[in-house]
Simulated scan of single mutants.
Amino acid sequence: MQLRVPATSANLGPGFDSLGLALKLYNYFSLKPSKFTSIQILGEGSKNPKLRIDNAFVRIFNEQLKKLIGETPPFKFVFNNSIPISRGLGSSSAVIIGALSAAFKVAGEAFDKQKILNAALHYETHPDNITPACMGGFNTCMIHNKEVRFLNKQLPHCISAVVVIPNQSISTHLSRQTLPKQYLQRDAFFNLSHSAFLSVAFFEEKWELLKEASMDRLHQYYRMRQIPILFDVQKTALTNGALMSTLSGSGSTFFNLCYAEDSKHLYEALSSKFYKLRVLSLEFDNFGMVFDDEFKL
């Protein structure tokens, strides 16, 4: 069995823990029955020996398989990772969705992405990354009665993404600790209105409204202070064709959305100015997690 899961960008400015989308940057997970368990890691994380000793994919896969069939037979696991680790592009959500999907497949369960999402809440309590990783496209989501509720929008080819990835990581857990314990009422109202407006702008494809709609007062400033160059990244992006420029998840990656015809200029502007950072031009993924026989999609 082989499956792939896309990278994601969550929050998208004001949509704290509720908005996210999927990018065409993938982690591939391969499983083959074996006499003993073995792990091979290619790409991102290949130089980290800890990922072979305590591998989250293998642990979650075995936990779920134990629940489904009562045993954990050995497999040869091969991971080919393109999603940077701890950079705000959903690497952990890709692992969670991939491991659960693989376990359901091995157990012979009728595949249901809603079940996968609900099971994923045990490992990730915020749905903004796991939902696009599973479903693809743009998603507005919430948790209700311990289940993920979401609305999904496929993204057209007329828009594209350019992401800027610093060398420095930002821990989601530690990043949350930098946020205020209390907020002014006017700031909470600001984010509520902008998050709602941003969601409608995506669904209605009103791309020209994204710049104003993606403004945030709850988390970005506090997180960006940890890597001050991100303020300049955002300013440069918005003056070179970006329709919106937001911190990706908790960072450190910065996500920029633009018209596809402007992506080359935006990429070159960011690459030349921030030549010490990694810059990628990416399309959007509209399928989420897929198995190998679906890769042609």
Rank of each mutant, 00 (worst) to 15 (best):
L3T: 05
V5H: 05
V5S: 11
S9N: 04
F16R: 00
L19N: 00
L23V: 13
L25H: 10
Y28Q: 12
Y28A: 00
Y28L: 03
S30Y: 15
L51V: 06
N62C: 09
E71F: 14
P73N: 05
P74I: 07
P74R: 00
P74F: 02
F79T: 01
I83R: 02
S86R: 03
L89T: 04
G98E: 03
K115G: 08
L117N: 02
N118L: 06
E124F: 10
C134Q: 03
F138N: 00
N139H: 07
C141D: 06
M142A: 15
H144T: 11
R149Q: 10
F150D: 02
F150M: 05
Q154A: 11
I159W: 11
I159R: 03
A161W: 11
V164P: 08
S169T: 14
S171W: 12
Y183A: 14
N191V: 12
V200E: 01
A201H: 00
K206H: 08
W207M: 00
L209K: 02
L210G: 02
D216H: 03
R217L: 15
Y221E: 09
M224P: 10
M224F: 09
R225D: 11
L230F: 05
Q234F: 06
A242N: 07
G249L: 14
F255S: 03
F255K: 02
C258V: 02
C258F: 02
A260Q: 14
K264P: 04
H265R: 12
L266R: 13
K273D: 04
L277N: 07
R278K: 15
L280C: 06
E283C: 06
N286L: 09
G288F: 10
V290W: 01
D292Y: 09
E294R: 13
